[in-house]
Structure formats: C-alpha cells, structure tokens
Nucleic acid binder design. Structure first.
Length: 260
DNA sequence: AGTTTGACCCGGACGC
DNA sequence: TGCGTCCGGGTCAAAC
C-alpha cells in the first residue's frame, strides 16, 4: 500500500521518464475508476509530475491528471499497449504506455482543471519545512481521538498510512491507543522526530516493498517494517511478541512492552 | 462540530 | 477440488 515514501519515489521516477513528452489517445478499460473527460488528454504535453498527500499529479497545460492508488492501485510505465488483467486505463506517451489499474477497483484517476477540491483540505507534508514541532503540538491539543487515528488523518498530516503510522509509534515508543492529549512534552518531541526519521529512512531505502505496485520503484533495497503485519513475531528491541488490535477498523500492530 | 461507523470493491485466505 | 464466506484497507458520506 503506497504511502508518502513510495509515492515520492514513484513521482520522481515518473517525472524523469515522461516530463515534456506527449499524451496519445487514452484507452479506458474500466470507466468506473475514471473521473472527468479523458478526451481532453490527447495531444497534451506533460509539464510536470508532482505529489500532494497521496495524490500523484500529472500536470498538463491548465489540466491535471490526478491518481490516487488507495491500497492496491498501481502505475506502471511499460513498452506495450495491451492491457494486463487489472489495468483500468492505458495512457500512451511517445511510444511508452502508463498502465494504471487496481485489482480492487478502489484506485481513482481524475481529469480536472483544478486540484483544489482534492487537496485543499489536506494537512502539511510531514517532510516539509512547514511541518514543525509547534504545528504537531498544536494539532495534538485540538484532537480528542487516539494517536494512531491522528497520524493517519490526512487533514492534519498528509501522506502517512497504516504501515508508517505503526512504525512511527513503535519508534516513538508510544502506545497506539493513547489519547492525543495525553502525550507529554518529551513524547511529542520523540513523536516528531520519529515521523521525520521513519519517513526519511523509508525514502532512503526505497520504500516498503510488500507489494509490487509499480515498476517505477527499485526493488534492490527496501524498508523493513519492525512491527506492522508482524503479529506474534518477536519485538526487535525486547523480544516480546508483537500484538495486533483494531483501531478505527484498521489492523494496528505494536509491542505491548515497549509502547506505553 | 467533532468523532465514529459503514460502504465502496474484489482477490485471497480460510472453512466445509 | 470447489464452492461459499469473510476480511482488509484509504477515503468519504452518513450517522451518532
């Protein structure tokens, strides 16, 4: 499931491959996942490829293609046009082809003149300069929910999903069920550092490679989750078995001894 | 208004 | 083997 680090890498590689190239006539295999008018894309030039939260944005002249991969969505850049089994849209680009798809059909592709409706509610990017300890502190004070839900709230911090939320809380030694307002100053400082550290580490290591959701990310190295989806395995710090609980309907993994 | 729950979707895991 | 059932996961709408 692609989160900030995976999407950041995807966007960088996609940009270097398709920037300044031209779009051909799109092939819509599954209209369900497409919003807007695909006919607007033909013969348009790709000005840039960027990311906002978990949205992958292809910028054209006064037009955007916005992709959200949700859990299992993918963007491949391949040398053949024929759709593979889960492909939803094929975008020809000067002899290469973006294959966009999702076995679960939850991913989305939107063609839109503006991206405000998609991104205006999004919170700060956790790796940006604007995301400060003070911002984290203030945001925590406003929230009544638990810290796990807080980290995944895209309106506060954009780009963190289930995997990195678990990893960040393990790194900060904070129990995922803790109310936001119960964290003391030291814990908030450590949480802030853990957000930056874990995301930067994952970015450096090429993202988490549990799923092969794109060929635009190197598979040579990868970030290895310490607790996420490791129920019953030994905590890398204290050997206590990792526990899985549900928070907000989401599988949540943590070490009951390290994370108080 | 803030927070929680359900729907969306379907491949894969599991049970009989 | 084969069929049926259930689960997951990010986001948004609906409910609380």
């Amino acid at each position: 499931m692609p989160e900030l680090p995976e999407l950041e890498i995807l966007v960088g590689n996609l940009r270097s491959r398709i920037k300044d190239k031209n779009l051909g006539k799109p092939i819509i295999v599954n209209p369900r996942v497409v919003g807007g008018d695909p006919n607007l894309l033909e013969n348009k030039t790709i000005k840039d490829v960027t990311r906002r939260g978990k949205w992958v944005l292809i910028l054209l002249d006064e037009l955007y293609i916005a992709f959200h991969l949700r859990l299992n969505g993918y963007i491949f850049l391949l040398d053949y046009e024929e759709p593979d089994s889960y492909d939803c849209v094929i975008l020809p680009i000067d002899g290469e082809y973006i294959h966009f798809g999702d076995p679960r059909r939850l991913a989305q592709m939107k063609i839109t003149k503006g991206i405000n409706s998609l991104t205006e509610e999004l919170g700060l990017d956790p790796l940006s300069q604007e995301f400060t300890l003070e911002y984290l502190n203030k945001s925590l004070k406003k929230k009544r929910s638990n810290i796990k839900t807080f980290l995944m709230d895209q309106d506060i911090i954009s780009g963190i999903g289930n995997t990195y939320a678990d990893e960040i809380l393990f790194s900060a030694k904070i129990n995922p069920t803790r109310p936001c307002q119960s964290l003391d100053e030291e814990e908030i400082k450590l949480l802030y550092k853990s957000i930056k550290d874990i995301l930067e580490e994952a970015l450096r290591l090429g993202g988490t490679s549990t799923e092969e959701f794109t060929n635009l990310i190197s598979r040579e190295k990868s970030f290895e989750p310490r607790v996420h989806r490791r129920e019953g395995e030994a905590c890398p710090i204290c050997d206590t078995p990792i526990v899985m609980i549900k928070i907000g309907g989401r599988g949540t993994y943590y070490c009951p001894k390290c994370q108080k």
